[in-house]
Amino acid sequence: MGESGDIDEIWRRAEGGAVAILDCREEIPCDPCEAVCARGAIVVGKNVCDLPRYDPGLCNGCGRCVAICPGMAIYLLDRSSRDGGARLTLPYEMKEEIKAGDEVWALDEDGSPLGKGKVVKTAKMNKRDHSLLVTVDVPEEWALKVRGVRIRVMSIGEPLEVRGCQREEDHLLCRCEEISRSQAREYAAMGFNSLRALRRFSRVGLGYCQGRFCQAMLVDEFSTAAFRDREGVGVFKVRPPVRPVKLGRLGGENG
């Protein structure tokens, strides 16, 4: 039995009505499920990184944990219907609208469609936004496999294989002043081994972005080329203004 509750017990209990299934397997700082469970069925405890301990025996299937879980990792299973199917309640936050009566794709954890299910109910997850809890009927054998429902399933195709060897081409490091990687290496070979020295010599870091986008890459490049640690290579000296400002405004103009 895992901390997320014994699956056999959940399966059994679902015969009597909705019960939560927690698919939370990793120690990350997170505990809202504990707070919303009025029955004390989910306990994280003092350490916010601990996995939730879940007792399905206390769950009344209210679904609040499904609506609050940031990881969308909780759903409800209900096997009480007499026709033998499974009724699932899942969080839904996609663009295409879903409403009761719709036929939707039921997807497994890899996004593969298991087949279609019928939406019996939708409810707003909360008052503040447009996300939904979707309740859908699916065949019983999918009950533990379905992880999402969709109107539209992506068809992206496979990437194409490219033949022939890829020659390493030169490319820009500094977008603003259009200085290439090979040029930066030449500077390093000339003995400029700190960014401050480099900027005095070239225009690197003096462009529009003030080195904001090239600095980290240049530090790596120079620390490799000059066998110097990164603190030795250093950063560009920061000069005012750190944001573009029209000169007239510094003179007191407002425009």
Binding site: E93, M94, K95, E97, D129, H130, S131
Partner: peptide, 9 residues
């Protein structure tokens, strides 16, 4: 354009 957003409307 996104138009109607899943969360934001």
């Amino acid at each position: 354009r996104v138009g109607r957003h899943a969360v934001l409307g």
